[in-house]
Amino acid sequence: MGAAPASRDVTSYGMGLAAPLALFFLLFFVAPLLQLFWLSLHNDTAGLHWGLGQYLHFLTDPFSLGVLGSTLLLGAEVTAVCLVLGFPIAWLYQRVGPKLQTIIILIVLLPLLTSVVVRTFAWIVILGRQGIINAALQSLGIIDTPLKLLYTQFGVVIALAQVQMPLMTLPLITALGRIDSNLDDASCSLGAGSWRTFFRIVLPLSLPGVIAGCTLTYAAAITAFITQSLVGGGQMLFMPMYLYQQASTLQNWPFAAAISIIFLLAVLAVVSVFTTLGRLSRGHGGA
């Protein structure tokens, strides 16, 4: 009976306590975003003429659209690699003893303990012409001339996948941990083999984790400026670098702002597709 006034008290306290953070967000997140948008609505670098010219330019320029497309594709590739490699790790984690669990979680978290820059340079060492992979393959006599791994799409995807892996694995571990292990047993005792159990029970029930992991990995992969530029090198251009060139090198601030807004909308669109999928999968039985 006394619960209602008590809970109202809690919310009114909560509002007051949230004010500093809300103010912080308003000042350092919403305001710059609005300024960015305002900037993108100018047709010239001096900022004298209003108009949608920057957007028109981007959307009619095959080169710009190509950069956007390859960035979104990169995100999809990295997400797919993380999902395919991360799911078995998370699945394994839920089926081994506590000692192995500690080791797995350590391996999963290890990338987060070193800086992205350091990890990226490590990948340059691994993938380079005289890198570990090429040296090993050559000394084994499998190849004669070094493979080109660095500065390729393959290299960027692999490096990004390693860097972003925890973002996929952690939500998956949580989601799989929530599944009652009796469900596996029930499915099996009803005559289902491991594959049917996996696709009909484990995968659908872990979808919230899959969606969360994919959203995080995707967003992180397409905005990973450092890894993209260092492992991708000069030949490959993705949105963050494109934006940086326009803003810093060419001083074309309105166009850079428009790129930002378009990129932001594209990311939001992809993320909302993920969330919608998630909501659909939870709402209905999945035939």
Partner: peptide, 22 residues
């Protein structure tokens, strides 16, 4: 024989119904 080939029906204490299936 693995459990899926023993033709043994089980009712679990927590029922273990598949929550996402009708």
């Amino acid at each position: 024989l693995p459990p899926n080939r023993r033709s043994v029906g089980i009712v679990f204490q927590n029922y273990a119904l598949f929550p996402h299936l009708s």
